[in-house]
Design a binder for these strands. Structure first.
Lengths: 102, 102
DNA sequence: CAGGATCCCGGTCGATACTG
DNA sequence: CAGTATCGACCGGGATCCTG
């Protein structure tokens, strides 16, 4: 039986409780800032958002640009790898709306 | 900001550590039996496999058919909802192979 | 063979407080 | 504003044993 390493790796990368939702807002809603994300996503804590963002950066989905200004300004954006994941995000969203009626 | 309920719901349904892999084997490799799945999937415990299968059944992805025979024979198969998810599984697999080189 | 029951551990996530 | 630090609760998942 052919094993499928890619599937389990993806599951690990996007399996976090909020990962898909974070990517969704950044990719499809043009949300770029920490505070925006926190307000968009229901009831995520700051520490959790921070950690999941760092993991998404580490896994190559996002870039993090710190402008070194006061007040602080940081922008998150998709990497090419992240961009290539957008069709799947759209498919998931549309699947949920159609199959689950959400 | 438009909230996106469908995304978080999907994350909850397929966020389990082995969910995507289980669906992958049933959908694309025609694996139907408990023991087969356990052997295909690396190092999943029986109790965990059992629980995740039950959740996939409860969430409408799978059907479970118990033939009531001795020795026991049970078959898992995709529901129509599960079938409709197959394109996303394929997309995930192909994305992983292409972007991650797996 | 297909799993249920039980126990337990580790990691994830959340709440709170604090910083540059 | 954009986080980090710390702590603790919770629960998903693993190990083991048992059953029809």
């Amino acid at each position: 039986m052919e094993r499928c390493k890619s599937v389990s790796t993806i599951q690990r990368m996007i399996g976090g409780k909020w990962k898909i939702e974070i990517l969704f807002y950044i990719a499809l809603k043009d949300v770029r800032h920490f505070g925006q994300l926190r307000r968009c996503i229901g009831n995520i804590s700051e520490s959790t958002l921070s950690k999941q963002l760092r993991e998404l950066v580490a896994d190559g989905f996002l870039t993090r640009t710190d402008f070194g200004e006061v007040p602080p300004r940081v922008e998150y954006a998709l990497t090419p790898q992240g961009e290539s994941f957008v069709p799947i995000l759209l498919a998931l969203k549309q699947w949920g709306e159609k199959e689950l009626g959400l």
